[in-house]
């Protein structure tokens, strides 16, 4: 899905040329990705592979940086940097705080 050059389904789609301001969330995901690269925890090609693995419907629906955080999280789990149990517990704790 990511390999979009010449894709027929977008040939008649206009380009949204307006500026869209980045959110704090966007900037933090971006900074986190850079740090993981600089610390050799996860490289940019691993990020891309993770994004490419997102099913088409989600690829088109999710915002740019929502795709990134999904790929980052998937990579960290696959590499054992964090475990699913830890992530689950952290998400549940966050839910409690809301």
């Amino acid at each position: 899905m990511h390999d979009l050059g010449g894709a027929s389904k977008f040939m008649c789609e206009p380009v949204d040329i307006e500026a869209h301001a980045l959110t704090d969330f966007d900037r933090e995901v971006d900074a986190l990705r850079q740090l993981l690269g600089a610390k050799e925890i996860m490289g940019v090609d691993e990020l891309r592979r993770g994004i490419e693995a997102i099913p088409e419907a989600d690829y088109l629906r999710l915002s740019y940086y929502r795709k990134w955080i999904r790929s980052i999280t998937g990579n960290l789990l696959q590499k054992g940097v964090i475990t699913e149990a830890e992530l689950r517990a952290e998400l549940d704790a966050g839910q409690g705080r809301v």
């Binding site: 969330f25 995901v29 955080i69 999280t73 998937g74 960290l76 992530l87 998400l91 966050g94």
Partner: peptide, 18 residues
Amino acid sequence: KILETDGERLLVAVRNLL
């Protein structure tokens, strides 16, 4: 399934763990 969690929640959780 866990990766389908909303991105903003994933970011906070991942940051805290790291």
